[in-house]
């Protein structure tokens, strides 16, 4: 992907733009997308299954918007309807909290992994990250099945 990208850019006069911050962010996005697509083919049981997943990945099976977001945006039904697979992705508030949880963990993980350790501030940020997540990480790894939703009216 990298070699293909460089060969296209070389001599096109876009070298300076690619080296700029927006160009680098675009490059990261392209790389991330390429890795995700590669994972689909790497993990799928068959080529057909991978193609199906990729089609859904690109929105070719339709979208399923969270009901409250759909109501807010007033989108036409075809964009809000269920996909053929009957997906209810993020229609449940609990799934949103899981998403926020995953985002928080990812963010703190990035801080811990990539903070510039040669700088005092970076080292401190890394230690703060460890202090904030260690309890949750131990919980998730060793005791993850312990916490389940309490059903209010079943006592």
């Amino acid at each position: 992907m990298n070699h293909l990208f460089n060969s296209v850019i070389k001599g096109s006069g876009l070298e300076a733009a690619v080296g700029s911050l927006p160009g680098r962010v675009f490059g990261w996005a392209v790389t991330f997308f390429a890795v995700c697509v590669a994972w689909i083919y790497f993990r799928a049981e068959s080529l057909e299954a991978a193609n199906n997943v990729l089609a859904g990945f690109l929105g070719m099976n339709g979208f399923h918007m969270p009901p409250h977001l759909n109501a807010l945006l007033g989108l036409p039904v075809k964009y809000a309807s269920l996909t053929p697979a009957g997906s209810t992705l993020f229609s449940d508030p609990a799934q949103w909290t899981s998403l926020v949880q995953a985002f928080c963990f990812s963010l703190l993980g990035l801080v811990v992994a990539f903070a510039q350790t040669k700088e005092r501030g970076g080292q401190r940020a890394r230690l703060v990250g460890v202090a904030l997540v260690i309890g949750f990480v131990i919980q998730a790894v060793f005791f993850g099945t312990a916490s389940e939703e309490f059903i209010y009216f079943q006592f």
């Binding site: 609990a94 909290t97 899981s98 926020v100 949880q101 928080c104 963990f105 309890g135 949750f136 131990i138 919980q139 998730a140 060793f142 005791f143 993850g144 312990a146 916490s147």
Partner: peptide, 9 residues
């Protein structure tokens, strides 16, 4: 170690 982020929210 019962408590996860979901519980916190």
């Amino acid at each position: 170690f019962y408590f996860d982020l979901d519980y916190l929210f």
